[in-house]
Simulated assay, not measured.
Amino acid sequence: MEKVKARVSFINKDSGGRVPPPEGTRYAPIIRFEELHGNWSCVFICTPTKNKEMDVEIGFLNREEAPNHLLIKGLEFELFEGTKKIAKGIVL
Rank of each mutant, 00 (worst) to 15 (best):
N39H: 13
K50N: 12
A66G: 02
M54F: 00
F44K: 02
V56P: 01
F80Y: 15
E65P: 11
F10W: 03
I30D: 13
G38S: 11
P22M: 08
F77P: 03
L75Q: 07
E81L: 08
E65N: 15
N68D: 13
N12E: 12
E34V: 10
G59Q: 03
E81C: 07
C46P: 10
I30C: 10
R32H: 12
V4G: 01
F77G: 02
E23A: 09
I30M: 12
F10L: 07
L61W: 09
N68F: 03
N12A: 15
V8S: 00
T49I: 10
E57R: 07
I31T: 05
D14T: 13
G24I: 01
F10C: 04
P48I: 04
V91W: 00
L36Q: 07
K50D: 11
V43W: 11
I58F: 05
G82D: 06
E76C: 05
E76K: 09
C42I: 01
V8R: 02
V19K: 13
M54C: 02
I11A: 00
P29G: 02
L75W: 02
Y27A: 04
L61C: 10
A87Y: 02
K88C: 11
I31A: 05
G38L: 09
N12R: 15
V4I: 07
A28R: 15
R26F: 12
E53A: 05
F33A: 02
R18P: 10
P22D: 08
K85M: 09
S9K: 11
G59S: 02
A6S: 06
E23H: 07
C46K: 04
V91Q: 06
T25R: 05
C46E: 06
H69T: 13
L92H: 03
V8A: 02
W40A: 09
L61R: 12
H37G: 14
P22V: 09
V19P: 07
T49C: 07
F80T: 09
P21V: 07
F60V: 08
G59V: 06
H69I: 11
V43D: 10
E35P: 10
I45V: 12
K88E: 13
K52M: 15
L36M: 08
S41Q: 15
K3H: 10
K88Y: 10
L70P: 06
V91Y: 01
L36Y: 09
A28H: 14
P48F: 05
K52I: 09
S41W: 14
S9N: 11
E35V: 12
E64Y: 13
F10Q: 02
L92T: 05
K52D: 13
R63A: 12
I45N: 08
C42L: 02
V56H: 00
I90M: 08
T83W: 15
R63Q: 14
E65H: 13
K73C: 07
E78Y: 10
P67L: 00
M54K: 00
K3C: 08
E65F: 13
L71S: 03
W40Q: 07
I58D: 00
V19F: 12
E81F: 06
N68S: 04
S9W: 04
D55T: 06
I30W: 08
V19L: 15
T25F: 02
P29E: 01
D55V: 05
E64Q: 14
A6N: 01
E76F: 03
K84L: 02
V8I: 03
L71Y: 00
K73S: 11
F10M: 04
D14S: 15
F10T: 01
E81V: 04
V19W: 11
